[in-house]
Structure formats: C-alpha cells, structure tokens
Design a protein around this nucleic acid. Sequence first.
DNA 1: TATTGTTATACTCTATAACTATA
DNA 2: TATAGTTATAGAGTATAACAATA
Lengths: 153, 153
Amino acid sequence: MSAPIDFSLDNFLPYKLVKTAEHVAGGLARLYEEEFGITRPEWRILATLGNRDGVKAKELSAETSLDKVRVSRTLASLESKGYVCRVRDQNDHRAAYLHLTLKGKELYQRIVPRALEWESEMLAGMSAAQYRDLFKALDLLLAKADGVTPSPL
Amino acid sequence: MSAPIDFSLDNFLPYKLVKTAEHVAGGLARLYEEEFGITRPEWRILATLGNRDGVKAKELSAETSLDKVRVSRTLASLESKGYVCRVRDQNDHRAAYLHLTLKGKELYQRIVPRALEWESEMLAGMSAAQYRDLFKALDLLLAKADGVTPSPL
DNA sequence: TATTGTTATACTCTATAACTATA
DNA sequence: TATAGTTATAGAGTATAACAATA
C-alpha cells in the first residue's frame, strides 16, 4: 500500500496565483467598469495607448496579451465610444496607427491616478523590498511558464 | 498643463498577476486536460476530495472558489465519468457527502505526483526563502483584495 | 504566398434568477 | 422562511477558422 499523499490545493502555486489574481484584478475591474464605464480589454488598450500613442494593432496585441481578434473588436468599441481614432499607414494600407482622441486622453488622465491609488492601497502592508521581490518572483514564473530559462538572478 | 503620467501596464500589479497566473495555470491545465482528460474545475474538485474525502457540495464550493452552480455541474460530469459518488446525508436529505470512487482515487494518485513534479520544475530557479515570501505576499494581497486587514507579519 | 486586420462560429465561463426538495 | 442543490438563460470571454485587402 502506498503512503498517503500530502497535497492541498490551497498551497499549490497555480491555484494560489489564479485565486489571488482573480480577486485582486476583479476588484480593480469593478472600479473602472462602474466608475468609468469601460471593460477590462478596453482598459488594457487605453492604458497602452496612453503610454505609447500611435502603435499599430499588432503591437497592441503583444503589449496587452489580447489576441488580434479581441484587439480588433475592442478597438471598434473604443472607437465607437470616441476614445480612439485610426490613421491608415500610407506605406502599408492594411495597417493603421492607433491614437487616443482628446476624450480618450482625458479619460486616461482620470483613470490612471485612481488605478495607482488603488494599487498603493492594495500594497499598503507590503515593504518596498517585499514588493520588489514579488515582481521578481512573478517575472521568474512568467519566464519559466513561457519556456524561457532566464539568466540567474 | 499637467505633467505627463508615467504609467506602464507591464509594471502594474493586477496585470502582472493576471498575466502570470494565466501563463502558469494555463500550462498545467494543458497537462491534465491532455494527459488525464479532465477540465480545470474537475481537477479542483478531484484535488479537494483526494485530500478531504466526504465533504459536502457547499464545502467544496468554498474550498475550490467555484460557485455552487459550477460545483453542481462539475460533480455531475465527474460522476458520469465514474470518478465521484454521492451518499445522501440521512439527517438532511437535501445534502450529500461526496466521495472519490476507486477509479477517482486512482486518478488522483496518478495526477498529484505529475502536478507536484510540474510545480517543482516551475519553481526550479527559486530559493526556499523566495518561495515562502512569494506565498506570503500572495496571501497578503488576497486578504487585502477581500477587504480583510490581516494582523501585521 | 505571407501578413494585417475583420468577420463568423462554436465553445467555455460567469452571473443571476427561478426552481425542487427538504429543513 | 431559510437552505442545499439543480436547472435555465443570457452575457462575456476564448479559440479557431475563413475571409478581404494589401504586400
């Protein structure tokens, strides 16, 4: 007879990560859905364009971890809300540069401080060192999960 | 004119968490979907019952972060696959104790070692202290996200 | 032929409410 | 009235494939 296995879901890394991510990101999502009327993918694209205006859809897809289908649909909805406009690339008529409109920039300027405020509340009990180590650990896991073995720290 | 905002999605905690969780948990999910033919919620319930046999659906819901609807449906599919059986509570005929069948226990015994092996590969580059700190940080965030202010570490 | 982006389709997940049978 | 669990339904998210326009 084999020895009983000692395994608890609650101490299992993937479950812990998913649960924490859902609760943390879910709280913020409620904030910008209820307070600013935008969805999660809309927020991701808005955040990216606020930081790097004029990128193309393909780059947006890489930056936001949204596939090209979702980017296309999210851009359509952001455009219909008046937050984003497209400027066709004159050298490659398939693609377009994406820009925030004035209204989009204004929304970005209102959301970011609230998001940062929310983040710092979330991190309130954590030291700067803990925060740095958390990000380091997450980066390590991300790289491992994607099959990249990073150079040692 | 206001100063330009320095904000990058990639350094923003909720995004980082979600992205890491998706990549990490996604890799494992492929493992037990392809190798063992069970879905994520099925795995969560199997893992819980393997550890705490005979709990009721309501407790399963709390343990697995799945709502009662999903628990009910997942139990139905696990039952139809022959991994789980129900024993009505004689004192409360609304509820039932959930048990792994022999086939369910056998599956659990095969999956857990693979899952732990996969986890340790994922944690390979991380020291014991880093691992402990990561879990501590995740617990802290989870408690904060759920609005509980835990006692200081 | 390959690439950018869009449209279509189907499948899963999530959230809610309505329902049953018990208590 | 409240609770354990089920069924029904609609909305959102996800994955894939087919497609149009352009390179």
